[in-house]
């Protein structure tokens, strides 16, 4: 029989990943994987706080009095792809959405703990979520072009930020970065609704990078696409990594293994009395290690298909 959820004993033993544990993991990785992949070289422990893009400590997100995810600790380094994986309901999308304060759109949502972006607390009361979202862009699960022309879709971000001149260049370079320019350059004034799903998702990416963000959050960006369109998006992510820090939530473990530098595995713990489910971060380390030699038994069970 497949066990769907980890047992209580193991949860109580090591469910919380503290900063120290994480640091220890990272140091081991750096040594262990030196020969395997060159990108691993940048995973080292002594990156100063100000160079980290995000530093999350003890983050919990609540919807009303329901705690959706608790005690998350993660450090996100620049120009890496970080994948968030885990079973449904483990709070990975919730965590992703707290990175650019999209959870603010849900009236009952509330965040505890600190989430530093470049050393600034994103949930400080002086911080304007609109400014945050201009620096930290987002691509959603379903391609969702606006009912406007392709041009107006891409120019939307710069326009709402007040840019009026040079939009043609921004549109062109964003579409080129999103590997869409050649397909649409002759029909920029046509409605974006007529594009294929894969094109629409690349348009969403072009739209997100047109505002010149530093970080791209991708919430299962390929789950509505066919394998060919998915492969194109994955290629694209590898190219975008040179310029952007990318966080991706995915249900597809192979995808996480293929594209990401680091992977965070989330799981669910169930309160037996109230049957409430809370997401927890089980293990966060570099992708190679997580998929080949995870420290936590729950991670191993998940990636080998024994659970979730």
């Amino acid at each position: 029989m497949v066990r769907l959820l980890p047992s209580k004993e193991r949860l109580s033993k090591g469910s919380r990943v503290s900063a120290e544990e994480l640091a220890a993991d990272v140091a081991v990785d750096a040594v262990a994987s030196e020969q395997t992949a060159p990108t691993d070289a940048i995973i080292d422990d002594d990156m100063p706080e100000s160079d980290l893009v995000f530093n999350v400590s003890d983050l919990s997100v609540y919807y009303g009095d329901f705690r959706a995810v608790r005690d998350v600790n993660m450090a996100i380094r620049p120009k890496e792809i970080t994948a968030l994986i885990g079973p449904s309901g483990c709070g990975k999308s919730t965590v992703l959405r707290s990175f650019n304060r999209m959870n603010d759109l849900i009236p009952t949502a509330r965040v505890e703990g600190t989430l530093l972006y470049r050393g600034v607390d994103l949930y400080d009361e002086r911080v304007d979520p609109v400014e945050v979202r201009r620096r930290i862009g987002m691509v959603f699960q379903k391609p969702n072009p606006f009912p406007k022309s392709i041009y107006d879709n891409v120019a939307y971000g710069p326009r709402v930020a007040g840019q009026k001149k040079g939009l043609d260049d921004v549109v062109e370079s964003s579409l080129k970065k999103a590997a869409l320019w050649d397909e649409v350059k002759d029909r920029l004034n046509e409605s974006a609704i007529g594009m294929s799903g894969g094109q629409q998702q690349r348009l969403s990416i072009a739209r997100a990078i047109a505002g010149d963000p530093e970080v791209l959050l991708m919430d299962e960006p390929c789950s509505a696409l066919d394998p060919i369109a998915t492969a194109r998006i994955e290629e694209l992510m590898a190219e975008l990594k040179d310029e952007y820090t990318i966080l991706i939530v995915t249900h597809n473990m192979q995808q996480a293994a293929r594209v990401s530098d680091r992977t965070a595995f989330y799981s669910v713990e169930v309160d037996e009395k109230s049957d409430r489910r809370t997401g927890i971060l089980v293990e966060y380390t570099n992708t190679e290690k997580l998929f080949s030699n995870p420290d936590d038994e729950r991670t191993e069970n998940y990636i080998t298909g024994r659970f979730g």
Partner: peptide, 15 residues
């Protein structure tokens, strides 16, 4: 109007 459009717009930094 689908909620996704509002989210996409908010995600791009629109008020």
């Amino acid at each position: 109007v689908p909620q996704e459009l509002r989210q996409a717009s908010a995600g791009l930094g629109a008020r």
